[in-house]
Design a protein around this nucleic acid. Sequence first.
DNA 1: GAAACCTATTTCCTATAGGATGTTGCTTTG
DNA 2: CAAAGCAACATCCTATAGGAAATAGGTTTC
Lengths: 239, 239
Amino acid sequence: MAQQEPREGRLRPARRLTLTEDVYESIKTLVMDHILPPGERVNIDALARELDVSPTPVREALARLEADGLVRKRPLSGYTTTPLLSRAEFDDLFDVRQLLEGATAGRAATHASAEARQRISAEAAASIDVEAGDGYRRHAAFTALDAKFHDLIAEVSGSPLLRDTITRLHSHLHLHRLYFPVAGAPDTNTEHQRIAAAIVAGDAAAATEAMRAHLSAARERHLPAFDQLPTPGTPRDSA
Amino acid sequence: MAQQEPREGRLRPARRLTLTEDVYESIKTLVMDHILPPGERVNIDALARELDVSPTPVREALARLEADGLVRKRPLSGYTTTPLLSRAEFDDLFDVRQLLEGATAGRAATHASAEARQRISAEAAASIDVEAGDGYRRHAAFTALDAKFHDLIAEVSGSPLLRDTITRLHSHLHLHRLYFPVAGAPDTNTEHQRIAAAIVAGDAAAATEAMRAHLSAARERHLPAFDQLPTPGTPRDSA
DNA sequence: GAAACCTATTTCCTATAGGATGTTGCTTTG
DNA sequence: CAAAGCAACATCCTATAGGAAATAGGTTTC
């Protein structure tokens, strides 16, 4: 039946352990990078052909992505990528981030090991190196570094549940339109360092406040993106 | 090939639209009610035979449940139900609940419609009717009513994201050992009514505080369950 | 000219089959 | 008697096939 040939696998990285896992990561990247446009239908068979696997693991990966909130499934109509965040949903997201990440910053300041404080401080300082590079790469590097910093604080907060919850939220954030000018990168670095300083100093209230201020500023920086393209909300199925 | 016979489907409810959806709900119930014991291996084929479907939809439902945190998947070894919460995880859960649900209560008090306040008040009053009935049914009814009250507040808070997050947390709570004496039902009702009163009065600070106090008390009520059975933590795979 | 109906195509959804891998029990050897 | 190696088994994982439903386009009728 010739099903075990050493295939190419041009889109996915080196086989980890299970095919489904690789397919999951591949599709996740496809959605995150808007290669699969938001709000668009996802053809299972076409995707399977593209990734050079059978539809079954694709289907299974899609089921996981649905629980993650990156795709949606209408009963007899197939999967669609989650549409772009509306202005209201975007504000809601940042409200919740302020609540959750403010708490992680405060907790990190209260009970974090000396080694952990050192790591946070180093991470905040390392952010400066991002300035070089061209458009896309620079943006991707900046986004990755920002995510890492926030996740590091969540990790140090000592609440695995809080960390998981925030991670899930962040994947929603990537549903925001992706390529906009990141003019505020220097500001972000400054704010990160303020947060790191408060955590290192062990001042919980200051850390919480610094995080909330950072997220508030970040929200403002993202806002212009809503005025650029048409149909910033959910384009279809508003009934 | 005789695959379209009108089968019995003894375990699942009336077909909704997709088989996978029904299977998902069935397995979820099985895990929640500990019919599939926590920390135990889940045999896909056996489960498929039990539910009278092919392994494929079972596999797909399991993938969704993994994202929900109710089962785990070890790469080449199959699925296992998530083990019972350890004491540390339980405390973590209630810490996060206090943070999130305290916020929903406060938000509900600030901006909720008059009709919504009415519903909350009614729901808190309705809780009294649960007192009758025998062990299992009584416990199930009490749990369902409690969940409904908390979800109602989350709904009224006006933050869909917060509501979703809390819903996800609550399914984790059901990972706690299920059948313990609910001696504190009257207390719970009293506390619920205090929360409802604060929300109706529009006092955000009082609502937040009442919710946090309620969860703190609830946590204390649940605590004795840890001293009853052996191996309260994660039994296996501690390496 | 517009709306409703019918038909054809595409796509999804479920079932079955076969290969690869992990696990378990037994045997053999030091 | 214990430990290591081997073999048989069970289970998972992936691929393929076929039936059912929804969607889209064209035609017909009012």
